[in-house]
């Protein structure tokens, strides 16, 4: 009885995985196809060569990466400071600030994109600027900060307040107490906030689409433009490379986690 359930559950998980990976596998195979269409014409790496010659696409990739780094960096600072401040509020005012802070997470992307576009065109008419790199960066920070706040606040709540007080008693000023004590307690929250911001920023299409202006392109909007013209097979090569990058990053993170766990387990048995 138990064994039978084991097999059917494995089968179910396998089916879901086929559903999740079938499109990706098809895309990977197509990326090595010599022909222009899906019909197999023989193995070739020519689309990878063309990919790296595509200056627009490479520029867009660079934009995506730099926006993701900058947006998650600024969001982490802004969000961590905000989380510490919010943690000092009590009761109703705290609930209000937190609800407003969650707003970009729960409101649909398209509404955020459209509303920011209205703001930027309005401000652009007054201060004579056009949408581009700067407005996209601001918009990305907008939807990233709430994730940092959400990740840092639980850490602050769990922190033992007396550690901070002890640091002050021992002669630290507020800033020293922060970077010598508090930051060590909340760093896991800060890191996961940063990583979440980074991934959301990398993946964003909708908000960038509305705030990019005439000249700026990131990877998503460039792919969008490519798909509108016609479907070039270089996209398959691009997807394959991105997929490989994701796999490598995931494996590295997984390895790091396992090592940390092992270290934790070791120290645990040692102290015992």
């Amino acid at each position: 009885m138990k064994k039978k359930r084991g097999i059917s559950s494995k089968l179910y998980i396998a089916l879901i995985m086929i559903f999740m990976y079938a499109p990706i596998v098809v895309m990977i195979i197509a990326s090595f196809n010599k022909g222009n269409t899906i019909a197999w014409k023989g193995f070739s790496l020519k689309w990878y060569g063309e990919l790296f010659k595509d200056k627009a696409l490479m520029g867009a990739l660079l934009n995506t990466l730099s926006i993701a780094v900058l947006a998650s960096f600024f969001s982490t600072i802004l969000g961590t400071a905000a989380a510490i401040g919010i943690n000092n509020f009590k009761g109703k005012s705290r609930a209000i600030i937190q609800n407003v802070s969650n707003f970009p997470i729960i409101s649909p992307d398209i509404v955020m994109g459209v509303s920011l576009m209205l703001l930027f065109t309005f401000l652009g008419n007054i201060f004579r600027f056009q949408m581009g790199y700067g407005t996209v960066l601001i918009s990305h920070i907008c939807f990233c900060v709430p994730f940092v706040v959400l990740n840092v606040i639980p850490r602050l709540r769990r922190m033992d307040q007396s550690v901070y007080d002890a640091a002050l008693d021992l002669g630290c000023n507020e800033w020293q107490a922060f970077y010598k004590v508090v930051i060590h307690e909340i760093i896991p929250g800060i890191v996961s906030g940063f990583l979440m911001s980074f991934t959301y920023s990398l993946d964003d299409f909708i908000i960038t689409h509305f705030t990019q202006g005439a000249k700026f392109q990131n990877l998503s909007t460039e792919i969008y433009a490519m798909l509108r013209r016609k479907i070039p097979p270089t996209i398959n090569a691009l997807s394959t490379l991105l997929f490989a990058a994701v796999i490598i990053i995931m494996l590295l993170i997984n390895l790091r986690d396992r090592r940390e766990e092992k270290m934790k387990a070791d120290t645990y048995t040692n102290t015992k």
């Binding site: 098809v26 895309m27 991934t199 299409f205 998503s220 792919i223 969008y224 996209i235 398959n236 691009l238």
Partner: peptide
């Protein structure tokens, strides 16, 4: 973690 548009495009193929 793959791009939103690329996931949809994969289904198109």
């Amino acid at each position: 973690w793959m791009n939103f548009l690329l996931r949809i495009y994969a289904w198109m193929i």
